[in-house]
């Protein structure tokens, strides 16, 4: 069974160092998954292309725009997520946060996630553990232990490649260890709420007799 990993990247320039790191992470994860005899499809989401729709979503009380709806479903139905942001003003970028703010609270339940960040200086490296990791913890995703931070100078340093492959191996194991998720159908392993993109009204509904139980006044 081929797995599917979605890469969400919040770089703003073209080409961006954030996308460069995202490419390296995606290639390394593909290598790690295929080395284990499984197939992997990788899909990239450039948040820059969604900037207008995210602004519409935020300023209209959540009107679901077509592109954003498609991407929300694409992310929640994936087997794993690679999320990479540039560091702006001591944290992930506003665009990166807007995207995750636009997801349903159950959109990433149990999702294996590899986090990455880029900046001009290594002084920002704690953004991974002080900002990105709590964000995904709140969303009940499973963030792999190694996060990959790349300052500009790291792109000439072998240490980056080592960290990329260590993180990629962790994500590969995590992706392969979970069964295929189908949005809205499969309960997660912990028996918690299932993962859902929240973009559709689900066909299953709680029967009214259950809703009324204890509230009929008798």
């Amino acid at each position: 069974m081929s797995r599917r990993v979605v890469v969400v990247t919040a770089g703003l320039s073209v080409p961006s160092s954030t996308r460069l790191l995202a490419d390296q992470l995606a290639e390394a994860v593909t290598a790690q998954v295929t080395a284990r005899g499984e197939g992997l499809e990788v899909e990239f989401i450039e948040l820059r292309e969604l900037a207008g729709e995210l602004a519409t979503f935020m300023t209209s009380g959540g009107v679901p725009t077509a592109g954003l709806t498609r991407v929300r479903e694409q992310v929640s139905s994936a087997d794993g997520l690679i999320a990479v942001s540039p560091v702006f003003t001591a944290s992930y970028s506003g665009l990166f946060k807007m995207f995750f703010d636009a997801l349903d609270t159950d959109a990433l339940n149990g999702m294996p996630v590899l986090i990455g960040a880029t900046a001009g200086t290594a002084r920002h490296s704690l953004v991974l553990d002080h900002a990105m990791r709590p964000l995904f913890a709140y969303l009940r995703a499973v963030v792999v232990p190694t996060g990959v931070f790349a300052a500009t100078e790291d792109f000439g340093d072998k240490g980056l490649a080592d960290r990329v492959s260590r993180a990629a191996a962790e994500l590969a194991v995590s992706v392969l260890s979970q069964g295929g998720y189908a949005v809205g159908f499969t309960p997660n392993a912990a028996g918690g709420p299932r993962r859902t993109a929240g973009t559709r009204i689900e066909d299953e509904v709680t029967p009214f007799s259950q809703l009324l139980e204890g509230h009929s006044g008798i």
Binding site: V63, P64, I201, V205, T206, P207, L211
Partner: peptide
């Protein structure tokens, strides 16, 4: 969905505000 279910249970009417949402929803 619980409110659509409530309307259906009693045989009451269901109103969708409609104006801030896409037609698929």
């Amino acid at each position: 969905p619980e409110i659509a279910e409530q309307a259906a249970y009693y045989g009451d009417g269901f109103f969708h505000n409609h104006i801030f949402w896409n037609k698929e929803h």
